[in-house]
């Protein structure tokens, strides 16, 4: 239950950990777009190298990155296979209805590298940023939306609470499952219907306790005079430092690099 690697904060003291979370979120967004803007091998290689550099700089064990890659291995395989066989042009190799073309191979490589880059760079964000920092930064970034009467603070608070409750509810599920297993509940065998039925003794207590916790939290927040974001000050102020400006500069350079590669160098594919 607790082995969910994807998106779990990994405490360490790297440059990436200390970076302003707003910068990290914006850079991630830029990267996600950038990955799909690569039109030839040069720009793809540039993006991939940057992603690798980010991963290496995060001082998070590579084992964890592999773990999150493992979860999407299947998707990568399927999409690259599909791309491999759906290329256009002269076939290099052919059997039965399948034909492999040069453009197919290029496409497959592109798709694979792109997906891997996406996963790696977004894992790097969640590994190096604690959930509270993340929602804090989101609240700040979404602030302009208040003009459209969107309750940014409330949304951010809901996200914080939801994120906070995920591990709590997982732990609770673990506990209740253990308690029912101790009474001989069998959750590992049987057909689908039997397994769904076996979940009832877990789900009912879980719901009851989720409601109880929500109620208790509401009371606790009210006891501390919580009344939304109006006039609320923060203990941790987000301020941009030298390191943040440097990293923004680096990201800008990479963006320029990708654009230049796309425009100036011949597209190999």
């Amino acid at each position: 239950m607790r082995d969910i690697a994807f998106g779990q904060y990994y405490p360490a003291k790297s440059v990436l950990h200390r970076l302003d979370p707003r910068v990290k979120i914006l850079s991630l967004t830029a990267f996600l777009v950038l990955v799909f803007c690569t039109s030839n091998f040069y720009s793809l290689a540039l993006v991939a190298t940057t992603v690798l550099a980010i991963v290496l700089m995060s001082s998070v064990p590579l084992r964890l990155y592999f773990k999150s890659l493992k979860m999407i291995l299947f998707i990568v395989l399927i999409t690259s296979l599909l791309n491999l066989f759906y290329g256009t042009g002269d076939p290099i190799y052919q059997f039965w209805i399948f034909k492999v073309t040069l453009s197919g191979i290029y496409n497959a490589i592109f798709v694979t590298v792109r997906i891997i880059c996406l996963i790696l760079v977004s894992s790097a964000l969640t590994f190096t940023t604690s959930p509270t920092d993340l929602t804090d930064a989101l609240e700040r970034l979404m602030k302009p939306l208040t003009i459209f009467k969107i309750k940014v603070h409330e949304i951010a608070m809901m996200m914080t609470i939801a994120l906070r409750f995920v591990p709590l509810l997982l732990e609770e599920t673990d506990k209740i499952m253990s308690a029912q297993k101790a009474r001989g509940a069998d959750m590992e065998s049987g057909n689908l219907i039997a397994r769904v039925k076996a979940l009832i003794p877990v789900l009912i207590p879980l719901f009851v306790s989720a409601f109880r916790r929500a109620y208790e939290l509401a009371v606790a927040m009210e006891c501390r005079c919580y009344q939304g974001g109006q006039g609320r000050t923060r203990m941790k102020q987000l301020r941009l430092g030298a390191r943040d400006y440097v990293s923004m500069g680096v990201i800008l350079l990479v963006i320029c690099g990708v654009v230049l590669c796309n425009v100036l160098l011949p597209s190999v594919r």
Binding site: K175, A182, G184, D186, P201
Partner: peptide, 30 residues
């Protein structure tokens, strides 16, 4: 697990059946 019965901390959070009787019967019926 039937031979070694374990009662967890705050075991009241595991109750789920409609009646107390049915809930106590959960273990033996398993």
């Amino acid at each position: 697990r039937f031979k070694v019965g374990l009662v967890f901390q705050y075991p009241e959070y595991q109750l789920f059946e409609e009646t107390v009787e049915k809930d106590i019967a959960f273990g033996p019926s398993n």
